[in-house]
Write a protein that binds this DNA or RNA. Sequence first.
DNA 1: ATTAATTTTTAGGCATACCAAAAATAATAA
DNA 2: TTATTATTTTTGGTATGCCTAAAAATTAAT
Lengths: 218, 218
Amino acid sequence: MRTETVENYLKTIYNLSADNTAVVANQQLADKLDINPASVTEALRKLHELKYVIYEKSYGTRLTTAGVKMALNIVRRHRIWETYLVKELGFGWDEVHVIAEELEHVKNDKLINKLAEILGNPVFDPHGDPIPDAKGKIQKSNFIKLSEAKSKNNYKVMGVTDHSTAFLKYLDKHHLVIGAGVTIKTIEEYDNSIVLICQKKEVNISPKAAECIIVQTI
Amino acid sequence: MRTETVENYLKTIYNLSADNTAVVANQQLADKLDINPASVTEALRKLHELKYVIYEKSYGTRLTTAGVKMALNIVRRHRIWETYLVKELGFGWDEVHVIAEELEHVKNDKLINKLAEILGNPVFDPHGDPIPDAKGKIQKSNFIKLSEAKSKNNYKVMGVTDHSTAFLKYLDKHHLVIGAGVTIKTIEEYDNSIVLICQKKEVNISPKAAECIIVQTI
DNA sequence: ATTAATTTTTAGGCATACCAAAAATAATAA
DNA sequence: TTATTATTTTTGGTATGCCTAAAAATTAAT
């Protein structure tokens, strides 16, 4: 298998399995990678042979130790590049994902470590995702989804799980950037949409959007 | 055809044709790309269909206007990255070629132009090769190969045509870096090897090496 | 002008990474 | 529990980009 193909599968499995705590379904992979389910089955069988995953027919897939190691490496490259693009090259947080998707495949540890060093070895990327260190160690956190937040409480925006330009531009518009403080005003009973206060302005957040915003109690 | 394949062929054709002034032979391409001649024939036929080259059977290949445009774009990306790696990220001129070979395929004009801007829109890369500007315009020069230099004359090292780590390290050892002044002491009649003075020290240059060093009269 | 050497092309194959359609399996609802 | 729906796998195909071996064409040498 081409390394780029392997890397894309492992990275996606890692992300979908919530840090390898859950098993991933073929369908999920097919959706995320925009690939036919039949091709996913085929690829997983090969990845199993290569000992990167444990793939059990009609059950699910999870990464092996070797698979996690490789996945963490790609995730590190991706997140370091995203941070570099924003912090050093002046890109917006809404435009770096696609570029990092290509840059992450450049295989040169010295390069990534040099970028990390210039950035001061950051622990979170511009979307609030943790950056594994050179050894694969990841910062733990007690963040929750905004959809799990309680009424009247105060929170700080720590990250997002949707990296699409559209979503990030929408957040920018309402000043919902990383580090912003928000107060939950009300949670609508009937549809779970959230009304919160950010920068003294009321913002209405749909349940779908609330699923993608990561916050911390303050 | 995959863009990366197209890009590698066009870039190589461009480099081998001396800025598109000559026609390129299949053999040359097969050697440079380390690919079987049969595969080269096949690829050239496709590139011809895609209107990137004019390929005449058993005669040779040259780039079309569209081909030159694309080639210049890749060459620009490659050389901007090499310069950035050396000037901004502290890499040696002998280690950047391989990395740039991967980075050059990342398709984002804004990124390249941003790097160029940070570098002050450089016109030459760390090996002395001219960097096309965003429109594809290239700086002309009156440089010659060291192998064409005359005895007793003074020259300045302007570039190299061999980017291998081994060769560049050899040059570093003798202080033959870009910008260095050299005086031709003698040219051996029988084998054309050159004895020159650099930093007050005598250096013997083989005819093969002299072919790969670019100088300018001073 | 032949012969010899080299280069190029043809022909037939192979692995990768996809696909669509059908069959098998698992999950959900009636 | 059975029927329905959804997911997964199998089967049979495709395009890409490479290969080897052999034939054909070109170039160089005698």
